[in-house]
Every structure is written in C-alpha cells, then in structure tokens.
Amino acid sequence: MDWFYIQGILMLAGINLIAVLGLSLLTGFTGLFSFGHAGFMAIGAYLGAFMTVSPTTSPAGLGLPFAVGVIAGGAGAGIVSYFIGRITLNLKGDYFCIATLGFGEAIRLILNNVQLFGGSRGWPGVPYKSTLPAIIIVDILAVIFLANLVRSRHGRNMIAVREEELAAQIAGINVFKYKMIALVVSAVYAGVAGVFFGHYMTFIQPKMFSMTKSTELTIIVIFGGLGSISGSVLGALLLTALPEILRAFEIWRLVFYGAAVILIMISRPKGLMGGMELTPAGLRKARNERKARILALKESKNGQNGEAGLG
C-alpha cells in the first residue's frame, strides 16, 4: 500500500466524517433519523461544482474559487433543509424517516433531469481541490463546533427532545425549533461534505447520492454509538476504511457490510461508544455515573434507606 492509496482512503474517511458529524447531531443528539442526507450531499456537490467548474467546459460553471464553492454548497443544503424541515418536522416516528427518504430520492431524480448539470450522465471536469490538510482542518472545526454546541443549553435542549419529547415541551423547550436547528446544521455539514466529495472525485453523478449512501451515513452514526462524537469519528474512520481495505474481495465486501450491519443491530445496539465520549471529561463522567450506580445498588441491598428500597 503506497502513500497515495492511504491518503485517498483518509480523504474519503475525512469527507464522510464531515457528513457523519452533522448526522450525529440530528440522530445521535436530537433523535431524528434520516434516510435522505445523501440528497443534501448532492446539493452541496452540485452547487460547489457550479461555483468552481471553469466556464469554458461543458457543462459550464462559474469558475470561482473553491472556498466560494464550499460556502455555497453548505449554505444551499442548509436552506433547502429549512424548507423541508418546515413541512416534515412535525411528522411522527417512522414518517419523518420516510419523508427524508422521499426528499433525498426526489433531489437525486431532479438532478437526473437537470441537463444544465449534465443530467444522469454526470458532470466531469470538477477541479481537484480537496486536499488532505484542508479536509483535516474542516473536520477539526466541525468537531469543535459540534462539541461546543452539544455542551450548551442548546445542545441540552436537543438531547431532551431525543430523550422525551413531551417532557421537553413541558419543560419549556421549543421542540420544533430545536429539531429545525439540528436538521439545518446537519444539512450544512452534509452539503460541505458533498462539496469536498465532488472536488475529490472530480466527477459527480446523481447516482452517487442514492438512498444507499444516506443509509451508510446513518449506519456509521449508529455504529459509533448514538450521542457520542468520538463514536462518530471512530465509526467514520473504521467503516470508511474497512470496505476500502476489503477491496481485495471487491464483490464480497458489501455482503460483509450488510451482514455486519445486522450483526451490530442484534448484538451491540449501543454502538462502539454507547453514548460515552473518549475525552478526559467524558471518561470522568462515565466513572462518576458508574460509581453512583454501584452506590445506589449497595444502598438498596442494605435497604437502610426507606426510599431507596422502593421498587
């Protein structure tokens, strides 16, 4: 394995990680499941390409700098997600998933028919702009933004929505607003990931952003453990690298992948990290919780405390 190959895998993993981090906020922290985030990646990839592709090629772009593409891709996906959120965030349970699936597929099918962007044949000639350092920097910024957001009253409100929606409302939390924030942030992340993806592949096609891609992102979040940023990071690195390393078995790798997903669901549904963070503060918190549990168990066994003995 040469460096070029490893670098490619790292870049793919880093790009996936951007999208996964966003989805982690939506799914892991706010409790909403999406099967349509590939659609937001597609919006990012196409808008980004539209900004940067040279005006002389066909399909033509605007020939602007890459940074403009990144901003446009993220903003575009965010704006679209806002309107989608307006009509779907009130749906209950399964139906929100189904709606995101519908929108994700609709975005792909619309792109299939937009000849301006090359339709289903795709769009070649996207400049190669995604570099490993740039991706790493964006990943780090994405993690910091997310970690700080989650550990604030805004993040706590989202977690409350995930834990018990009705109780969150009664506690004065504007559930719709916080679902919306989570959705828009996750869509911006997915859009930015899409821009980097397009400028890594140098060729984009609606087919790349199918429901399978959306499912893959959600699976990574669950694999890493809901409500854990470090889990999402590990998940994205492992699950992107694994299929690439399995390339030797090319045709069998997706078979393993499918089997692994079922296996994870039926055997370790809490994911790698199970809501824990791999940081000093996170580990301390986990230790305190364990201590408290042991203490409570002891007390209820001794039964000296009247209330603790209640069951």
Binding site: T215, I219, L254, V261, I262
Partner: peptide, 18 residues
Amino acid sequence: FLYFIISAMGASILLENI
C-alpha cells in the same frame, strides 16, 4: 423501531450484494 429499520436496510444490502 429504528433498529428494525436499520437491520432491514442491512438485510436489503446483504441480499442485493449476495
């Protein structure tokens, strides 16, 4: 219910790729 859906997705990927 979500775990069922993900498991279903896994089964669907598995069947298709087998």
